[in-house]
């Protein structure tokens, strides 16, 4: 009996970890694209909020989650265009613009939410878990992996697609070159700016999707500041993952594990430890992990540097 209980406990932890990791996976894979092209987008938090709000607003008014997703991606692309215009076309400092995007994202979503939805009270019908035939009924594995909603499942194809695009297509090759040797790309007749625009738009669309996950597939409501710092965590994930999409997936998952674990450990009254100790666990572990892996220097060499044609 005890064994079964602890096995199902483990399965529940795995399932929770994946769910908690999902928004981070979307946002950090997006950031991988952007940073690989040499654009540091610290405005992820603002983009996620835009996605969370737009997704909620559209789903609330239309009743369709798909429309919510479309709206979130649109909002992400719009914010991405703003960011790209300032950082790529105008060549403004990326961190400055990113900070502004964060402020705008938090402020605008909260303002609009109050203006149009705050008295609505009710939430939306969120994405339902999708049972996969046969797989979902597996003992242990079913509960751990195969009772998630479509958003959570989609993190797998998104990660795979990201790997394919970045490493197996000429677009990806050029995109990475833009982050390392923009001059070479320029000389070969391709537009550095265009590729950077592409990377930033992919980044913000994915980050917005990560935000939309929060309102469309996890909680059913928009709350001001609902991203609760996930955009910043995603930035950390990217560095920790050494700018690899698979790495971003795994590190996000790791973060999810620590977070799920801290929630479960807190609930064990026998431990008699202050609950704050567990709350700090994900953050302490991230630092510990950074020390253990001893980051090699494989930062894209042109990260954060605007490209000026000479």
């Amino acid at each position: 009996m005890e064994d079964v209980a602890s096995l199902s406990f483990l399965a529940a932890t795995i399932a929770a970890s994946w769910r908690l990791a999902a928004p981070l996976i979307f946002a950090s894979i997006g950031e991988v694209f952007s940073e690989r092209a040499g654009v540091l987008n610290i405005g992820l938090e603002g983009v996620m909020l835009a996605g969370a709000f737009a997704g909620f607003a559209a789903a609330f008014t239309s009743g369709s989650i798909l429309l919510g997703v479309a709206a979130a991606i649109t909002a992400g692309v719009l914010v991405g265009l703003l960011f790209a215009f300032f950082t790529i076309t105008i060549k403004a400092d990326q961190i400055v613009v990113g900070a502004a995007i964060n402020l705008l994202g938090l402020g605008l979503t909260a303002f609009l939410f109050r203006a149009y939805f705050s008295s609505a009270g009710k939430g939306i019908e969120i994405a339902k878990p999708v049972d996969l035939p046969w797989l979902s009924d597996l003992p242990f594995f079913g509960e751990a992996f195969f009772r998630q909603n479509a958003f959570v499942y989609s993190t797998l194809p998104v990660a795979a697609l990201a790997v394919f695009v970045l490493y197996r297509t000429s677009f990806g090759l050029t995109l990475r070159a833009v982050g390392e040797h923009p001059k070479a790309v320029d000389v070969s007749g391709r537009s550095v700016a265009l590729y950077r625009y592409g990377a930033v738009l992919i980044c913000s669309a994915l980050a917005a999707l990560g935000g939309a996950f929060l309102t469309l597939a996890h909680s059913n409501q928009f709350v001001e500041g609902i991203s609760s710092g996930r955009g910043f965590i995603a930035l950390a994930v990217v560095v920790f993952a050494r700018w690899s999409p698979i790495g971003a997936f795994i590190v996000s998952l790791l973060f999810g594990v620590f977070y799920a674990l801290q929630l479960q450990l807190q609930a064990q009254p026998v431990l008699f430890l202050p609950y704050q100790l567990f709350q700090a666990l994900p953050y302490v572990m991230t630092i510990a992990a950074l020390i253990l892996v001893r980051n090699r220097v494989d930062t894209p060499s042109m990260l954060g540097v605007a490209y000026k044609k000479s």
Binding site: L20, H218, V223, E224, I226
Partner: peptide
């Protein structure tokens, strides 16, 4: 603010 954390907890 984090309704998803309440849910997971």
């Amino acid at each position: 603010t984090d309704a998803t954390a309440t849910k997971e907890a």
